[in-house]
Design a protein around this nucleic acid. Structure first.
Lengths: 143, 143
DNA sequence: AGATTTAAAGACTTTTTTATCCTTTTTATG
DNA sequence: CATAAAAAGGATAAAAAAGTCTTTAAATCT
């Protein structure tokens, strides 16, 4: 479904979203420890997310990662697209280029609407939405 | 979503389903040419499917691949499970072991039912179902 | 200014997935 | 029985993904 890297990225961003603020930034080392994501690899992913302005960071003492209000409005799809590339989720299930609604592949109809709905969910769900869920106890943050 | 290998496998099985019968078996070479799947790699996949009795084959002159009536009742999920392993589709979206319905991860609810429904679709859709669709022009077989 | 802390960046290694090549076994047929 | 046709099987190679290590740049604090 998602690559390992995307899973890591979402977990890490959520961890930052819940546990940090501009005054209270969080280090790659700490994210790594709490999420079990290998530190060096995590750093790469965070770098990439920062470069695309999906999260924020500052270097040096008291630096680290944090989210601005704008960052909190980022959707899960944006995160996935930056890490996995734009068409991992939307490409044809059988890998056929010619496949679309007019000209559906053999499995298109049995995937079509559920996949579309799933991608739509990823698109409309923001980091902040998930933080609210977590804070209200609706879901938990992985360890 | 699915690995390349699974996509190949489904495409190949469907090609065999539509274009062959016990009297008219089809060669790896021909499947490869028509589906654009690299022959040697395709052979490996077919081998694996044969070993798990999802498709049938005979060696030697006039040999090749074909499907029995039983093979035509095989579900897409069986194919995917043989090629990709059992939990590629059912594991947690964020890769968390502790995630389940009682204890859902942050993205669980926005994936939960669509993913479940998708896997159910794969489970209940047989090769024969897709052949019917293709023959009635509802969908097409990739090239 | 110098030392320290931290992310950014780049080079590298390992593992997994995808792909190829070559040999062996099975089956049919002349 | 010899030969050819085909899948099965094993060993290897190439590419992509995942992961590590080392150096560089930026920010802060004495």
């Amino acid at each position: 479904m998602l690559s390992n890297s995307s899973k890591y990225a979402i977990n890490a961003v959520l961890y930052v979203a819940v546990n940090s603020s501009i005054e209270n930034k969080i280090l790659a080392k700490d994210i790594s420890r709490e999420t079990q994501i290998p530190q060096a690899y995590l750093s790469k992913l965070m770098q990439e997310l920062t470069r695309h302005n999906l999260i924020s960071s500052v270097r040096g003492p008291n630096g680290g990662f944090y989210l601005t209000d704008e960052n909190r409005g980022v959707s899960l799809l944006q995160i996935v697209n930056v890490i996995d590339g734009d068409n991992r989720l939307t490409s044809c299930m059988l890998g056929l280029h010619a496949c679309d609604h007019q000209h559906p592949c053999a499995v298109h109809h049995l995937v079509g609407d559920t996949k579309t709905r799933f991608v739509e969910n990823l698109e409309k769900t923001t980091v902040q939405d998930l933080v609210s869920d977590i804070k209200s106890g609706k879901s938990f943050l992985g360890i």
